[in-house]
Design a binder for these strands. Structure first.
Lengths: 217, 217
DNA sequence: TTTTTTATTCTTGTATACAAAATACACAAC
DNA sequence: GTTGTGTATTTTGTATACAAGAATAAAAAA
């Protein structure tokens, strides 16, 4: 059995989508810049057909804008866009929190508490990158505990759109402590299976995110 | 000036997307059935390239499933899918209602009240189809009043995914009155700009939708 | 008869060629 | 120097050809 099966098994379409998505999130393709088909298909080693299909997928995801006959550009988020997305994401994660308290098993909750503890280790060591990665996972995993596929899908989508912004916002040192406090409150509420309290904590956490990132857009 | 400018101006891609979307919503392409590229491109009079790009858009919207090397199928919603979508939609419209109370102008609210009154006329006449259309519009317009583009986008997406189901659910006569009562409550709360109450009314209305449609999935 | 294998046909995936549109450029007129 | 116009170049959009894979049918073996 081939160990790289999971990768080779993915369709070319999915591979192109996620590679271009990464280029956008990492900022290699800058927000607002035109997407040059010729150079990118050259870089990726695929032909235009699958590449353009991938662009359609990314456009539907909201990462790319296709301007008919004028080429595609990396979507550039205005502060209003980001505020709107956080407003929705906050509400979705609030729902996720409430549902998680009803539907998650003790094991699942414990796994998330463990994840939180690992985050604390990175926080104390001021290891920003691993903390950031675990943070993304924390929110995804908590949303999974809602057992609502649609909710997961929408949360994933918004998280992807905001990933770039969040990463930039995380550069500022002073805000980190506040985020960790928020997480503490969330974990406590989850342990107590207090859905309302967890929901509110999550909504507040996302609202605080706005304060953390708003000046870096 | 050409009056059909708005239509001819749309890209072929958008046209194909919305035509196939309509075929799905109207049930001409049945849930679960394979999408035969050959016959559809023949019907639509386009070649495979733009058609397949349209499929990628529809897949990202959640109306179509692309199975690599095995063709695409119209997504068939399980009862669990529908429940999950309504759970999210209910929460999103709750947020929309709250924001509308804060952000909508008196004019905008009045326009929605007028729309509601037109719905009542159709209800009294038992004109199901025009009522149904205005009902879609009512929810869309109310969401617009939230002034949150992301919220509108997600609401639109969920509404499109559920359109088929809702239409079927609306066939049952007894549930109609309940839906109208819900709308009465929503309009009253909106007039009073009571965000919490409107939000709750909207969430309850969507929850009731589940009861209305659950036996027809 | 049932199962397995192999050949054929049909469908999907990708590359490429051509058409159409937009952009860039050069040059002229003002 | 600016504006306008026509041409060349580049880029995008669509059709089609070919390759690769899956489904089907036919033939051979159990």
């Amino acid at each position: 059995m081939n160990t790289s099966l999971a990768i080779t098994n993915r369709s070319l379409h999915d591979q192109v989508v996620s590679r271009v998505r990464d280029l956008i999130i990492e900022g290699i393709l800058e927000p607002g810049s035109r997407i040059d088909e010729a150079s990118l298909i050259d870089e990726l080693g695929v032909s235009r057909t699958p590449f353009r299909e991938a662009l359609r997928t990314l456009a539907a995801e909201g990462l790319v804008i296709v301007r008919p006959s004028k080429g595609s550009v990396v979507r550039k988020l205005t502060p209003e866009d980001v505020f709107a997305m956080l407003e929705v994401l906050g509400h979705l994660e609030q729902l996720a929190g409430e549902l998680a308290c009803q539907r998650a098993s003790d094991q699942e909750i414990q796994a998330l508490v463990d994840l939180h503890n690992r985050m604390l280790v990175h926080y104390r060591a001021r290891d920003r990158m691993p903390y950031y990665k675990l943070n993304q996972e924390f929110h995804s995993r908590l949303t999974e505990l809602s057992k609502n596929d649609t909710l997961q899908e929408m949360q994933r989508n918004l998280q992807a759109r905001l990933k770039r912004i969040r990463y930039i916002g995380n550069q500022r040192p002073d805000s980190w402590a506040g985020a960790v406090e928020d997480h503490e409150a969330m974990v406590a509420a989850l342990k107590a299976r207090d859905g309302k309290r967890l929901g509110q904590a999550m909504a507040r956490h996302i609202a605080n995110t706005w304060d953390r990132v708003k000046d870096s857009i």
